[in-house]
Computed example of a mutant assay.
Amino acid sequence: MTLRIVRVHDEATVLEWQQVHNEIVPTAALSVDEVRERATRNVLEVAYDGDVLVGCSTVRPPDADTPAETVIARVLPPYRRRGFGETLYQHCLARTQGKGVETHILASNVDGVRFAEKHGFVEVETYLLPGDTVPFVLMRLG
């Protein structure tokens, strides 16, 4: 397994990042314009096994509302349990300043919650976005 991680930098990578995000987080699907805007303030990356798209990630810096950095590694279901999530997560973690790390996971993504718990994250709160019916779980690295 050789994971190739590429920063979102053109229309193709914007569309691939959006594809993975929207498949894993269908209740908070993002438009292409929303992905482009996020790429201006966050590190968005896509991950490939060779030329096959297997995942994407987000590293969000702290801000006035959230003093912790946010790390989110997403792996498409057919590619889970092959080490891609571990590699992508460690890559994202290396991008942080280590001043507190959190992640947000759709509660229905049992694999994602289990992965975060295995890596030392603990649940801080569960919240619903306006209009949603499936909550997100906010977890912090303990």
Rank of each mutant, 00 (worst) to 15 (best):
M1K: 15
T2R: 11
T2I: 06
L3Q: 01
L3T: 02
L3N: 00
R4M: 02
R4L: 07
V6E: 07
V6D: 04
R7Y: 14
A12W: 02
T13E: 04
L15G: 07
E16K: 09
W17P: 06
Q18V: 07
Q18M: 11
H21N: 10
H21W: 06
E23F: 14
E23V: 14
V25M: 02
P26Y: 10
P26H: 13
T27P: 00
T27Q: 08
A29V: 07
A29H: 13
S31F: 01
V32I: 06
V32L: 12
E34R: 07
V35N: 03
V35H: 05
R36V: 00
R36I: 01
E37G: 00
A39T: 07
R41D: 04
L44W: 00
E45H: 09
E45R: 10
V46E: 00
A47E: 08
A47M: 04
Y48F: 02
D49W: 00
D49P: 00
G50C: 13
G50A: 14
L53S: 00
G55H: 05
G55R: 05
S57P: 03
S57A: 09
V59K: 08
R60T: 10
P61W: 02
A64H: 11
D65I: 01
T66A: 15
T66K: 15
P67T: 03
A68M: 02
T70H: 00
T70I: 03
V71R: 02
A73C: 06
R74L: 14
V75M: 01
V75D: 04
P77H: 12
P78S: 07
P78Q: 06
Y79P: 01
Y79V: 02
R81S: 12
R82M: 07
T87H: 12
L88V: 03
L88W: 01
Y89V: 00
Q90M: 11
H91R: 15
H91A: 10
C92Q: 13
L93Q: 11
L93R: 13
R95F: 01
T96R: 00
Q97H: 10
G98V: 15
G98N: 11
G100W: 01
T103E: 04
T103W: 06
L106V: 12
L106I: 12
A107P: 14
A107F: 14
S108P: 13
N109G: 14
V110Y: 10
D111N: 15
G112I: 06
R114M: 09
F115E: 02
E117I: 13
G120D: 12
F121V: 05
F121Q: 02
V122K: 13
V122Q: 12
V124N: 08
E125P: 05
E125K: 14
T126P: 03
Y127A: 06
L128H: 08
P130V: 10
P130T: 13
G131T: 05
V134G: 08
V134C: 12
V134T: 15
V134R: 11
P135E: 05
F136G: 09
V137S: 10
V137H: 11
V137I: 15
L138T: 10
R140N: 02
R140Y: 00
L141K: 04
L141R: 06
L141E: 04
G142P: 15
G142Q: 15
